Simulated assay, not measured.
Amino acid sequence: MAVDHLDKDVLTHLRDVMEGEYRTLLDTFLEDSQERVEALRKARDTKVLGEIAHSFKGSSSNLGAVRLVELCHRLETEAANQSLQALEPLVDEIGDEFAFVRPLYELERQRYPF
């Protein structure tokens, strides 16, 4: 796993704590994250954008998606002071980062099928 994208220690801890529910947790994160990326792209209000970024930041933090946390934090912070148009590149960067980590999480799911 890419160290600067995922915190392997967080995943190890979750795997130990969640045991048989670990894969379900990963599935839920992937599904919810895809929905959040789509919601970010569809948002037409900076307040809504900031709220989605805040929620996405929390779930990404819980699952060790280090770079996603950083990007969502930036979006959450900048949404208060920027226009939607100015935030589009950051939304795109979040989408790109999720596209990068998604296969890493899918590989993790395959490693722990139960």
Rank of each mutant, 00 (worst) to 15 (best):
S33V: 03
Q110W: 06
A99T: 14
F114W: 08
V3P: 05
L26M: 06
F100N: 11
V69S: 07
D4N: 09
F98Y: 14
A53D: 06
L84A: 06
S55G: 14
L30A: 08
D27A: 14
T12A: 12
L30V: 10
A43I: 06
L11Q: 10
D4W: 03
H13A: 05
L63N: 09
L25V: 11
H73K: 11
G58Y: 02
F100Y: 14
L71V: 10
E38Y: 01
I52N: 02
N62F: 00
D4V: 01
V66P: 00
H73F: 09
F56M: 08
K42M: 13
H13W: 01
V10E: 06
T46P: 01
E78Q: 15
L84Q: 07
D4A: 03
S61E: 04
E97I: 11
R15F: 02
E93V: 05
L40P: 10
D96C: 08
D7E: 10
H73S: 15
E78Y: 08
H5A: 09
L25K: 00
E106W: 00
K47M: 02
N62V: 04
S59D: 00
I52H: 01
L6C: 07
R23Q: 15
L68N: 03
S59G: 02
E97W: 08
D96L: 08
D7R: 09
L107H: 14
D96I: 04
E38C: 01
L30Y: 01
R41C: 10
A2V: 00
L84E: 06
A39T: 12
A65F: 07
S83W: 01
S61C: 05
F56S: 03
E93N: 13
H73R: 12
H54E: 10
L90N: 13
A39R: 14
M1E: 02
L75Y: 12
S55D: 04
R67D: 06
E88P: 06
S59N: 13
S60T: 07
M1Q: 09
Y112F: 15
L63R: 02
T46V: 10
D96T: 12
V3S: 13
H5S: 10
E76I: 06
S61L: 12
V69R: 10
G95V: 14
E35Y: 05
V91P: 10
P113L: 12
D92Q: 15
Q110Y: 05
L87I: 11
Y105H: 03
E93W: 07
L6W: 00
A86C: 06
D16M: 07
E108S: 08
R109L: 11
L26W: 02
Q82I: 01
A86H: 03
D96W: 05
E97A: 12
D32H: 11
L84C: 04
P113K: 12
H13I: 09
D16W: 00
L30I: 13
E19T: 02
L71I: 14
S33W: 01
S60H: 03
D9F: 01
S61A: 14
I94Q: 09
E93D: 15
R109F: 07
A53S: 05
E76D: 13
E93P: 04
G64A: 01
M18S: 11
S55E: 01
F56Q: 04
N81E: 12
D32R: 15
K57R: 09
Q85H: 08
P113G: 13
I52K: 06
F100E: 15
R36P: 04
L68Q: 04
